[in-house]
Amino acid sequence: MTVLDFINRLLGREKPSGTMARQRLQLVLAHDRSDLNPELLDQMRREILEVVQRYVEIDIESCDVSLETEDRVTALLANLPIKRTREFPLPIGSAISSGSGSGPAALALDRGARTGTNAEQLAAAGAETSALAGPSASRVPGTTEPGDPPSGIQP
């Protein structure tokens, strides 16, 4: 470690590279292991949010739907902070005008945008008002072929 590295570390400007290595690996392995094509994953995220939004108003900005992996089990984890519940569910396919005006399609849910928090941290962060799908709830089967048309997962 150089003196400059050390000072940066001391000032909290820089994470040790070992920590970065761990986080990057966890993310890439979650994807490697699930064998899900990123496009389909993205579409699935959008559809999940659409369904949830019919029942509750969620805080779009802080929503997070991602793959996590622990003990070689890959899980789809959704952390969706709830603003308020709807008295009646919206009809299927209804346009959703959430607070910020941006539709679910505009969500920043790229795999790169995440920092690789683990399941416990996610659970703790959203403990009060979140819809949380834990590892037991939704194991992702790696059955999609990369060439499948998007219609493959439509209801």
Partner: peptide, 19 residues
């Protein structure tokens, strides 16, 4: 030395990740 400085994946990191 690199592991102690956290400039390398730690033993626990690797065993946890690979299970």
């Amino acid at each position: 030395k690199m592991m102690a400085n956290q400039e390398m994946l730690s033993v626990d990191d690797v065993t946890d990740i690979l299970a």
